[in-house]
Structure formats: structure tokens, C-alpha cells
């Protein structure tokens, strides 16, 4: 068992921080993480990466979506201390080497797939997760059950809408968000 009983310097009787190493957008960070710290707050407050947004802070809006070890998750509900050794990708890390923007970011601009933009980083990270999940053959609620297991699932408009349902856009830019995702398939 890993021991995490090191008492922090705050004088609490209970241990309340644990040294944790995360790779964020390819760069390693080791921090004494307060056990209460969720990944979203660590990114925004400790690392200054304010791309991931705090919308509801309860896993209901998707604005905080990032990729952890390549999978999309709500960073507001993930305790950072649980992620020792994980690879985190935020909207700031989507563009590849030598790119200004990831093709999906370019598609969002081309399609004007937002109004206020607050949900956009979460939509982008979520959509990248969707593309990977569909390519790996993960079904969704609207996938025909007869679709063979493991075969890539074609991302119809209905599939995109269902798979992105965990990302709310209060401006209602959904049609153009779906257009942008279709552009990069």
C-alpha cells in the first residue's frame, strides 16, 4: 500500500496533502496536493491553465471536460491526488507540434460553433474523446445493437448529438458544434 500519511505543514492532526506527479500537456508537474483538490482547480489555480472551465462544478455541464490518459472525463469530479502518474490533456495542449490549432479547433472557428465560448474547451476535449471512442468501436445509446462489436461506429449526426450530450451549451450553438465535429471525421 502506498502510504500517504505525511502530515502537511499546516499542523493538522490528519494528513491532508500528498505529493502527486501529473503530466499535463506533456509536461511533468509534482505538487503537494491537498486531498480535497479536484483536477479542475489544480489546473486552473495551481498551474494557471484556465482553458478548462468551471460551469456547474457538479458533473452536470461538461465545461470542465479534459482528457486523462486519453479518455474524456469531468475534471470537477476527479480528486487530483488519485491521478498520480496520469497524463492530462487540456484545451491548451490540443494543437500538435508546429500547429497553431488542432484541426477541430480550426473547424469550430470555421463553423462559428459558439457564441459566448464558455463551453467550447469542454466541447473540444469531449469531441476528441468521442472520435477516439467511436473509432475504437464503443457503442452509444443510439447505436444499432446489431452493429458488430469492435468495428468503428460511423458518427452520424444522431451519434454526435447523443455522444456530446454531456456538454451543455447555454447559447444553443449545438447545430454548428455538430457541423464542426462532422468536418474533422
Amino acid at each position: 500500500m502506498d502510504s500517504h500519511d505525511r502530515t502537511a505543514t499546516t499542523g493538522h492532526a490528519q494528513p491532508d496533502t500528498t505529493d502527486t506527479t501529473l503530466r499535463v500537456n506533456g509536461k511533468p508537474h509534482t505538487l503537494a496536493v491537498d486531498h480535497r483538490r479536484v483536477l479542475l482547480d489544480l489546473l486552473r489555480e495551481d498551474l494557471g491553465l484556465t482553458g478548462a472551465k468551471k460551469g456547474c462544478d457538479h458533473g452536470q455541464c461538461g465545461a470542465c471536460t479534459v482528457l486523462v490518459d486519453g479518455r474524456r472525463v469531468n475534471s470537477c469530479l476527479l480528486l487530483a491526488v488519485t491521478l498520480d502518474g496520469a497524463e492530462v490533456t487540456t484545451v491548451e495542449g490540443l494543437a500538435g507540434d508546429g500547429e497553431d490549432l488542432h484541426p477541430l479547433q480550426r473547424a469550430f472557428l470555421d463553423r462559428d460553433a459558439f457564441q459566448c465560448g464558455y463551453c467550447t474547451p469542454g466541447q473540444l476535449c469531449s469531441a476528441l474523446g468521442v472520435l477516439a471512442e467511436a473509432a475504437a468501436g464503443h457503442p452509444s445509446h443510439v447505436t444499432d445493437p446489431a452493429t458488430p462489436s469492435g468495428a468503428p461506429v460511423p458518427l452520424t449526426r444522431e451519434e454526435i448529438r447523443e455522444r456530446l450530450s454531456g456538454n451543455l451549451c447555454r447559447c444553443g450553438a449545438y447545430p454548428r458544434i455538430a457541423d464542426a465535429v462532422e468536418d474533422v471525421m
Binding site: 500500500m1 502506498d2 500517504h4 490528519q14 494528513p15 486531498h35
Partner: peptide
Amino acid sequence: MKPFAYVRAGSV
């Protein structure tokens, strides 16, 4: 949120 201890278990 109240402070709490954290233990990562390696076996059941």
C-alpha cells in the same frame, strides 16, 4: 469540503 486522509490500496 472537510479535510480527509487518503489511502491508495494495492490489494483487496
